[in-house]
Design a protein around this nucleic acid. Structure first.
Lengths: 138, 138
DNA sequence: TGTAGTGTCTCTAGCGACTAGAGGTTCAAG
DNA sequence: CTTGAACCTCTAGTCGCTAGAGACACTACA
């Protein structure tokens, strides 16, 4: 049996975050000591590791809740799980695409000014004022 | 002179967001009609366009406030502006890097299951349960 | 057995950057 | 002059935590 602090160390999930997961129903409420402190078993550890791993991969709490639901029904089709993973992948790809466009534009803007001049003539500030200076939409 | 709605249409910034920017001090409080409605001039439009453009590039409200401050002092060195832009660029690049790692891992996980099977045997769920199945850290 | 020090408890509030809704007022077109 | 859209303020909610207050519990050592 682990205290919440021990669980936190093992999973690298912060203590208040663990309590937050419990509050939102992602994590089952564990047993308590006579003094009202949480005590987790191996199942609790496993569950939290699952959550942590999924969060690290960028899944939303909602998506994780759905995945956990599915885990609880081993006989159900796993189509939903692959759907969630695929959706997450598209989401990540969309974000990458957008960020790469921003990166390009920021490089262009940064190159325009070496920081030697004076605010009035700064290409960075000018670029932000005037979208027309941009090479493409973003 | 524009109403807040007209300003919203021109800049593509939503009305409540404009009010929010005013509340946080990013946007100066404009004149008002006798009936207490906001009326913006060209300067207000320009300022909001600046903010919108910077937000689109991912700058934080705080960073934008600093850039606006600088704009108000045309004689000051623009080092700070280039610093902010450079920091933003590193930030974007760090995010891209992380997302690309996630993308790889998600592709790998998704490939492991075609959605035909049953939840119990699902590689997606198994991967999330067991970090050891991952090819690298993320 | 006493005590010190760390861990844990609940509760409330805050973060960033908005978004939504209620309930009321003002504007502009016809 | 009327209608209906746009506007006003205010409060509360979003997501996924994070921080802090004030009180209680546990553990190690003397």
């Amino acid at each position: 049996m682990f205290s919440i602090g021990q669980l936190s160390k093992r999973t690298k999930v912060k203590v208040p975050t663990i309590r937050y997961y419990e509050e939102t129903g992602l994590l089952d409420a564990p047993e308590r000591t006579d003094g009202n402190q949480r005590r987790y078993d191996a199942a609790g550890l496993e569950r939290l590791s699952f959550i942590k791993h999924a969060r690290d991969l960028g899944f939303s709490i909602e998506a994780i809740a759905a995945l956990i639901e599915l885990q609880g029904h081993p006989d159900r089709s796993c189509q939903e799980a692959t759907d969630i993973a695929t959706a997450q992948l598209s989401d990540v790809r969309a974000k990458i695409k957008r960020l790469r466009a921003l990166e390009k534009e920021l490089v262009r803007i940064s190159k325009g000014c070496d920081g030697d001049g004076v605010s009035e003539d700064c290409y960075v500030l000018a670029s932000l004022s005037n979208h027309g200076l941009c090479e493409r939409e973003h």
